[in-house]
């Protein structure tokens, strides 16, 4: 039988992972719903950002948050460029899976070529130490990541629901021709979504670098949990992504604590398969 403290600590670390899953899934869920692009290259961008943050820090001493600020517009431009190409070559939903998986492999090789396949770890922290809540420890870095993840998701949700931009985006998804005839710029909106999604990848990547040891092939270890988060949360739903991320994060942590650590990856994949089989209209 495990102790209450250990259980509490597991739940806490599950909540932290859950926030990260939501942050990493946000761009994916937006482009899936609003662009009908299943953008697996989102994971590649996350890792590219993570490695750049690591490298700027270890080689030049740049603070990761500074690198993050610089990467946001640069990644936005990458996202726009990607969408321009997808429009130009008329990449549809199904083709997008294969094309973006290919892109991911290319970026992985690129990362490996530049930074080698060795494990690397950024030495910097945003703040050292942890917040003590009773007997539980909450590292400041993780708390900060959660605050950013939740803020970004809530801001995106508010933007989708309460702004002209959000209404235009939903109208454009609902009925593009009619939206256009009322002046909605469908194409510009698509580029904006793709750019924003890539910017979210930059933010997520910096936190991956802050919290995890990096190696190029670990890109793929994120597919299962993040895709499960996106599908369970509902495509295009930032708040759904948070709820689903937390659920999956805690579920995973409990599996680790109660069953065995090696069982952890089974939880999200089982969930993913169950969603696809029992709830196909989710896509």
């Amino acid at each position: 039988m495990i102790s209450a403290t250990l259980l509490g600590q597991s739940v806490l670390s599950g909540l932290f992972s859950g926030c990260l899953y939501a942050l990493l899934g946000l761009g994916l869920t937006l482009s899936w719903r609003y662009l009908r692009i299943i953008n697996l290259a989102h994971f590649a961008l996350i890792f590219l950002a993570a490695y750049i943050a690591y490298w700027m820090n270890s080689a030049y001493g740049f603070h990761p948050l500074l690198t993050c600020l610089a990467m946001i517009p640069a990644f936005f431009a990458l996202g726009v460029a990607q969408q321009l190409l997808f429009i130009r070559f008329k990449v549809g939903e199904f083709a997008s899976v294969i094309v973006t998986f290919g892109l991911t492999i290319i970026v992985e090789s690129l990362i490996q070529w530049i930074w080698s396949a060795d494990f690397v770890r950024m030495e910097t922290h945003l703040a050292r130490g942890s917040l003590e809540i009773g007997k539980l420890l909450a590292p400041w870095d993780e708390l900060f990541m959660c605050a950013v993840a939740i803020s970004v998701c809530v801001a995106t949700w508010a933007c989708l629901n309460f702004t002209w931009l959000g209404k235009a985006l939903r109208a454009s998804l609902d009925n593009p021709d009619i939206a256009a005839s009322f002046g909605v710029p469908n194409r510009a909106l698509a580029l904006l979504v793709s750019g924003a999604a890539a910017s979210f990848a930059a933010i997520g990547g910096v936190f991956v670098a802050l919290l995890y040891t990096l190696t190029p092939s670990s890109i793929y270890s994120w597919f299962g949990v993040v895709l499960a988060t996106v599908l369970l949360g509902g495509l295009g739903s930032p708040l759904g992504a948070i709820a689903a991320g937390l659920l999956i994060g805690v579920g995973e942590a409990m599996t680790m604590a109660v069953v065995a650590p090696s069982w952890a990856p089974i939880a999200p994949f089982t969930l993913l398969i169950l969603i696809l089989v029992l709830w196909p209209e989710r896509i």
């Binding site: 209404k167 109208a171 609902d174 009925n175 939206a179």
Partner: peptide, 12 residues
């Protein structure tokens, strides 16, 4: 825009 509210339709 069938998934949007009446007023959101008018907003568009």
């Amino acid at each position: 825009f069938t998934t949007m509210t009446v007023e959101e339709n008018l907003d568009i």
